[in-house]
């Protein structure tokens, strides 16, 4: 593998992203929305939660029986914690959504403009091409996710009154989520796009089908809310292992489908 070819693909793709309003929106809109939503949630709901009745607090306490350390917290702090956990789960959607938009556009547009044939006629290897395209989809998605999370942490310091609630944002599990789960989720989007691109002719269809990958994230959030699952370092590490295995399998399938001959003779 020649790194300069991977870099050439990455560079060219970035040049195209910079010149495409649609792709820039695909990066910035989810980041903006998924950052402002939890911040707004804290700003508008946070103080009201101090007035939650003891009955409601009991519901929260029931949901969190697996977390005895919260028993000394006030009702408002527990409520804030639960809501923050929900919002933070949404940050995991960001690498999925952004990578899916960028990867689908990257692969499908080559298919539509018939630019793959001259590209494949150069000495570039399939692995170099896919790595370049994968990085194109992953790097902006991860940068957006990490910057958004950082902004959320900084703004949260100003908006969250309770030091105990704020310190919950700094738990190791979110470090695992951002540094392990986010890249793996991003890679999942890329892998799914490569697989779908052999069958689908427009980026929107890839995004619609690929959009189903956000479901597990939503299910995780709901499962925690209803007390079925506790999101902690262990669950995130297990999730990362499962995700890594899924990524490898799907990526292998994608690479198998992404063959020069099939691209040139079967892709219509």
């Amino acid at each position: 593998m020649k790194p300069y070819r991977v870099f050439a693909v990455l560079r060219r793709e970035m040049q195209e992203i910079v010149k495409s309003r649609g792709l820039l929106l695909a990066i910035f809109l989810p980041a903006l929305f998924l950052t402002l939503l939890p911040l707004g949630g804290i700003a508008f709901l946070g103080r009201a939660l101090d007035n939650v009745s003891s009955g409601d607090a009991q519901d929260f306490a029931r949901l969190l029986t697996m977390m005895p350390e919260l028993k000394t917290w006030s009702v408002g702090e527990v409520a804030s914690y639960v809501i923050l956990e929900q919002f933070l789960t949404m940050f995991l959607m960001m690498p999925l959504i952004i990578s899916l938009s960028l990867a689908s556009q990257s692969v499908i547009s080559e298919k539509q403009t018939k630019s793959l044939e001259p590209l494949l006629a150069t000495p570039i290897r399939t692995s170099e091409l896919l790595l370049g395209k994968g990085l194109t989809a992953m790097l902006p998605a991860l940068a957006a996710t990490w910057v958004a999370f950082l902004i959320f942490l900084l703004a949260g310091r100003l908006l969250i009154d309770s030091p105990r609630v704020y310190s919950s944002l700094l738990q190791p599990k979110w470090l695992v989520a951002m540094l392990a789960l986010a890249p793996l989720l991003s890679l999942l989007s890329v892998s799914i796009t490569v697989v779908l691109s052999s069958r689908v002719n427009d980026a929107r269809t890839v995004q619609q089908i690929g959009g189903f990958v956000v479901l597990p994230i939503v299910i995780l959030g709901v499962a925690q809310t209803v007390g079925l699952l506790l999101l902690n370092v262990t669950t995130f590490v297990i999730g990362a292992i499962i995700l890594a295995a899924a990524d490898i399998l799907i990526l292998r399938l994608g690479v198998r489908l992404f063959q020069r001959e099939k691209i040139l003779t079967r892709w219509k």
Partner: peptide, 23 residues
């Protein structure tokens, strides 16, 4: 190739530069 297959958002230099880098 039969179809030019160029990157239409990029200019001529950027298109050629990409391929020159691949070589």
């Amino acid at each position: 190739t039969e179809a030019p297959g160029l990157y239409e958002k990029l200019n001529a230099v950027q298109n050629l530069d990409f391929f020159a880098r691949l070589y």
